[in-house]
């Protein structure tokens, strides 16, 4: 491999990996710091894209061709075809999951009237009213559950 190619590979590598990490980070940020479930799903899509980019980047080789044989010429260097196949599969899986998520999102909005994760969590945590401390092992502790809920939901 020529020194130029090596240099290109290094810069490309940093850029591609950096891009993948950035996509993942933005996606995760959207998932953990936002309350809107739609944004959470968009974040999920971003994370998946980032991961796919990472996978494709693994198979990269400088100055290599796409893994398609043109005109019967087989002895040209080609990039690794395997990650490409994997990414194809991963994309389709991602599409399926996101479509299902969209369907659930519709039902969540319909059922709770909101897409705010805090509201949904409140609904889910609406447990049987009686906190029921242990029989015979009565504990003087306050019902900490309520405080935890209030903390996470406000």
């Amino acid at each position: 491999m020529s020194p130029d190619a090596l240099l290109v590979a290094e810069y490309l590598g940093r850029a591609l990996y950096g891009g993948a990490i950035l996509l993942i980070a933005i996606g995760i940020y959207a998932m953990v710091a936002r309350y809107n479930l739609m944004r959470v799903l968009l974040g999920l899509a971003l994370v998946e894209s980032g991961v796919n980019l990472f996978l494709v980047a693994i198979g990269f080789r400088p100055e290599a061709a796409a893994p398609i044989i043109v005109g019967g010429v087989t002895d040209v260097p080609m990039v690794d075809p395997l990650p490409q196949a994997l990414v194809l599969t991963a994309i389709v899986i991602g599409v399926g999951v996101l479509a299902l998520a969209a369907a659930l999102l519709i039902r969540v909005k319909e059922t709770y009237g909101t897409l705010d994760t805090r509201e949904v969590a409140k609904f889910l945590a609406a447990e049987p009213a009686d906190a029921a401390p242990a029989a015979g092992t009565a504990v003087a502790g306050t019902p900490a559950r309520e405080t935890v809920n209030a903390g996470s939901a406000s």
């Binding site: 959470v40 799903l41 999951v97 299902l100 998520a101 659930l104 969540v108 059922t111 949904v120």
Partner: peptide
């Protein structure tokens, strides 16, 4: 069910 499943899915 829907909220729980969505949480699970995410």
């Amino acid at each position: 069910g829907f909220g729980a499943a969505l949480r699970y899915l995410v």
